[in-house]
């Protein structure tokens, strides 16, 4: 089993940049960036986050591993969020989605990097990846 990641930011470019950094450490982990108001502006949209959850869970890829379901070995998704309404919209998206997902209470960039590393562990679970993402809150920089 494996864990997917979604990075949600008010800025689509910020989300993509964070994914770019985290992907360096992510190995085979599915990691999706989502952000923006859908019209080129700053914001987040629950429906877009729902799509990202499905993509991170491998649903959009169909049954790629040929085991008869469309989860492709992903048993859950850890969601990293930036500020304010991104948190609320991620929670709404999770509530509406079929994907088993949790929001990590973590700084978005450091949390994404930590989560990416944790997700490469073959015994990674939704909880272990979330825990590692949240441990990023304690990172001291100077």
């Amino acid at each position: 089993m494996s864990v997917g990641l979604v990075v949600v930011s008010h800025s689509e470019r910020a989300a993509e940049g964070i994914v770019e950094i985290a992907a360096e450490m992510a190995g085979e982990t599915r990691i999706e960036a989502v952000g923006g108001d859908g019209q080129g502006g700053i914001g987040t949209v629950p429906a877009d986050i729902e799509d990202a959850l499905a993509a991170a869970a491998g649903e959009a890829a169909g049954d790629a591993d040929g085991d008869g379901d469309e989860t492709n070995g992903v048993d859950g998704v850890v969601v990293l969020v930036d500020l304010g309404s991104a948190v609320m919209n991620a929670e709404v998206a999770i509530e509406l989605s079929d994907v088993d997902a949790v929001v990590a209470d973590a700084p978005v960039l450091e949390g994404a990097v930590n989560a990416a590393v944790a997700a490469t562990d073959p015994s990674a679970t939704l909880e272990s990846v979330r825990e590692q993402a949240e441990a990023a809150a304690d990172i001291s920089k100077v």
Partner: peptide, 19 residues
């Protein structure tokens, strides 16, 4: 409302209505 309002008002006014 959830997709069009933006900010916290989207999930608060719209999301609550969906549920």
């Amino acid at each position: 409302l959830m997709s069009e309002v933006g900010g916290a008002s989207g999930p608060l006014f719209g999301g609550s209505l969906v549920f």
